[in-house]
Design a protein around this nucleic acid. Structure first.
Lengths: 254, 254
DNA sequence: ATGCCTTTGTGAACGCGTGCACAAAGATGG
DNA sequence: CCATCTTTGTGCACGCGTTCACAAAGGCAT
């Protein structure tokens, strides 16, 4: 039971570092914008600025793909778009299913960023029978019962989970059993999957909490000048705190 | 001009590594679940499993906060919930504004994960006059003209951008000018902000592209048995290089 | 009180990612 | 054809993050 592998060992497959892979979509976006403006070539410096990264890092990233630049000139935009697209696997069609058509699921279904790359929403799935047949983003929602059949009929290998936290793991299990090997998880839960299955998670609440940490630190530094104590953050027995049961630390070790 | 700071120097403020901060919300969630089940104490091993991380990493993370455990026993759940909440700044109220009430913005407004922590949606803002006054998630949408006033009146320091890509930077500039110092960006664009302002971005399309990369790699390894032409990464600028699809970039350098 | 057993907290080694700085490569102009 | 100038590709060093492994700490039973 404790064998849940959420993290993959590494991308030692035979090349491209994980950190580089994560930046390729960024470069691709910047390049696409240049392409639309019919810019023929771009230097590492310019492209790096557009993508918001260091130019040395960008050149090193590209070096993992091959030598696609021309010294003294830069990179050919169209050619690079093609190479990165191919490397990311975007030259082929990726059917995806979205499970859980609530507010977020519907937003995802309507999101243009999917279709613009090689992704195609093959189906929308929800457990609520009342949703069945109702069109969202022009696609009729199907009931969970059809999940396995949908996956197999469309050859889906990527699934998006936008269900409530409680439903995520069961849905995940069914997706994996039906043949899905990559999952994008929006539910605030740790998913346990077998080896060979990739999971990436997006958690809105976590991002905000990280921002709050830095925000608090900034505020603390300002007021720290006049007062050693942090702002009311150190509120003792903060009653209105998170607790269903107005709880206080109450239990102190020692 | 190329001075756009999207990345912060570091969190050497006086302690906690960035990687650790990013995991604290994860621990907090696991601990909250335990708390609701009235579990009094938990060992690093158990908690690590629940959060999906290595137990040594978890102990080291906690060691940055202080010595909150008891050897031979583990950690007191309630006490740890409190300490992490305090460290993350969740014991205080964080008013946030969401700008761009489209599908995604509406989904965010309805997302329960915000309110459950210290976050409170102070206002919803959209540039479309037709949206003004219309309630979303029980909160009436306000027009962009009110942005500065809303920020100042509510003391908002965290802003969420869910606008189309084109509108993101102008909105960002206005938020920052009005006093916002932390931004969560859902628009697919690189935001340029002054020093001292934190930006975190969530890009749905990028996550999918990363999954596609790994998915392609998995598929490639399978079929690689019969075909050795896969790792063409070392290909020099050879014209008409690998053409599995016979698709050539059309524009070739040289 | 004493010894055993469990679990924390952390020193140290390792590996990955980042950024610097420069030599090699190629274009361009005379 | 040669000199010069631009920009790539990368060797190298540094710092952060992860993991191992173990000594110290504390509870608990006898």
């Amino acid at each position: 039971m404790a064998t849940g592998r959420t993290h993959r060992p590494a991308t030692r497959s035979r090349g491209i570092p994980e950190a580089t892979v994560a930046r390729l979509p960024l470069y691709l976006r910047a390049l696409t914008a240049l392409s639309e403006r019919s810019v023929p070539t771009v230097s590492s410096e310019e492209l790096a600025a557009a993508a918001g990264v260091n130019s040395a890092k960008l050149r090193k990233d590209f070096s993992y793909l091959g030598s696609y630049g021309t010294r003294g000139v830069g990179y050919d935009v169209e050619y690079l778009v093609y190479q990165i697209s191919r490397e990311l696997g975007l030259t082929q069609d990726w059917p995806v299913v979205i499970v859980g058509i609530g507010n977020l699921g519907a937003a995802l279904a309507n999101y243009g960023g999917f279709a613009s790359r090689g992704f195609r929403v093959a189906a929308l799935i929800d457990a609520d029978p009342a949703m069945a047949g109702k069109p969202v983003a022009g696609i009729p929602v199907q009931h969970s019962d059809e999940l396995e059949k949908i996956i197999k009929d469309n050859g889906v290998s990527i699934g998006v989970i936008a269900t409530p936290a409680g439903a995520a793991q069961p849905v995940c299990d069914r997706l994996v059993a039906a043949g899905v090997t990559s999952i994008l998880n929006f539910a605030p839960t740790v998913l346990t999957v077998p080896d060979g299955v990739d999971v990436r998670k997006v958690d809105l609440s976590i991002e905000l909490q990280i921002l709050a940490f830095h925000e608090q630190r900034k505020a603390g530094e300002e007021t720290a000048a006049g007062d050693g104590a942090l702002p009311a953050a150190t509120t003792r027995n903060a009653a209105g705190d998170q607790g269903p049961d107005g709880d206080v630390p109450a239990v102190m070790p020692a």
